[in-house]
């Protein structure tokens, strides 16, 4: 990272005094502890899911895993509705993000076109929606009126138009030299053609940024499932499912699929207590985020900096 290079060249010129050493020790210590507090919980949950269940129940697993096993993850397959939630969340993440990115790209391009009929008005019409909010209940009633409660579409359609992302794309497209587009226009290319042949490929960096953030948002979404689809358990998102399991302190048999035999339920109930089930689902929920996280990092600063120059 460029940031780090700059910092390095500055820091190398500093001569150490005793005060500096004390300062450094505390500084390093603080950051080490804070960083540890950010990763240890994930590690703790993880080692508990891969350790022997009896030891976990006894509370013997604190720092190192013992009696390695992956049976918990296999047993999860028998837990009621978990995989349908995983599927729903995956599909909504992919579909929702794809549509949002496409819409932001196209709308972001269109609002840069001065010749559009009342462009300024329509642009403000979109942007102003960031700053007001009718409130939770009117929003819910509106969705109910549109017939979007208890449907999968409720996850996708409302998120397609995202004014903030449209602004990001617009700002980015404005930085692309206008000559490229002009020459295509002279050659007789239509707006569509210019969009998908020129604008789309050139704005891929910003589209990747909003895609990443959009995908994380979809994966983590919880409210829409909780409020709109409360009566359709087969549409619950993974976060909603996890929330339910976290609040379900006992009654393990309720978690096991109705189709599973009594002995199956008994085995699962015998082998996995609520705590282990909660831990395992938490891991299932977080692993995809941790997997894409390394790829996301390079977009952080870009996304933030672009957000700072909006409007």
């Amino acid at each position: 990272m460029v940031i780090n290079k700059n910092l390095k060249s500055r820091n190398q010129k500093i001569k150490l005094t005793p005060a500096d050493i004390v300062f450094n020790i505390f500084n390093y210590l603080f950051f080490a502890i804070f960083t540890l507090s950010c990763i240890f919980p994930f590690y703790y949950i993880f080692i508990n899911t891969i350790s022997d269940n009896e030891l976990v129940t006894k509370g013997a697993i604190t720092l190192i895993p013992k009696g390695l096993t992956i049976s918990n993850y296999i047993q999860m397959g028998k837990v009621n509705d978990l995989w349908s939630s995983v599927g729903i969340t995956f599909i909504r993440t992919i579909l929702g993000t794809a549509l949002m990115v496409f819409a932001s790209a196209l709308a972001g391009y269109l609002v840069t076109k001065k010749e559009m009929w009342h462009r300024k008005f329509w642009y403000r019409f979109l942007v102003i929606t960031m700053y007001f909010n009718a409130g939770l209940i009117p929003w819910y009633l509106n969705m109910a009126m549109l017939g979007l409660t208890n449907t999968f579409a409720a996850y996708i359609i409302p998120g397609i138009v995202s004014p903030y992302n449209i602004i990001l794309v617009k700002t980015y497209i404005e930085s692309i030299p206008a000559e490229i587009e002009e020459s295509a226009y002279i050659d007789g290319a239509s707006y569509w053609k210019i969009f998908y042949k020129i604008i789309w490929p050139l704005s891929l960096p910003i589209l990747a940024t909003i895609a990443i953030f959009g995908a994380v948002g979809h994966w983590n979404s919880f409210q829409d499932s909780l409020i709109l689809n409360a009566n359709t358990p087969e549409l619950y998102t993974l976060q909603h499912r996890l929330y339910i399991y976290l609040n379900q302190s006992s009654n393990l048999s309720a978690l096991v699929q109705p189709g599973a035999s009594a002995s199956d339920s008994a085995t699962i109930a015998g082998q996995m207590n609520t705590k282990i089930i909660q831990y395992t689902i938490s891991m299932v929920t977080i692993i995809p985020i941790l997997c894409v996280y390394p790829f996301m990092q390079r977009y952080f600063v870009k996304g933030l900096m672009l957000g700072a120059v909006k409007g």
């Binding site: 960083t35 919980p41 976060q239 929920t285 977080i286």
Partner: peptide, 19 residues
């Protein structure tokens, strides 16, 4: 590592709190 918590949902934060 300090940015990771920003990308997990509050439900997961609660799961961590429980753990």
């Amino acid at each position: 590592f300090t940015t990771i918590p920003n990308f997990i949902s509050w439900v997961l934060v609660y799961a961590i709190a429980l753990a």
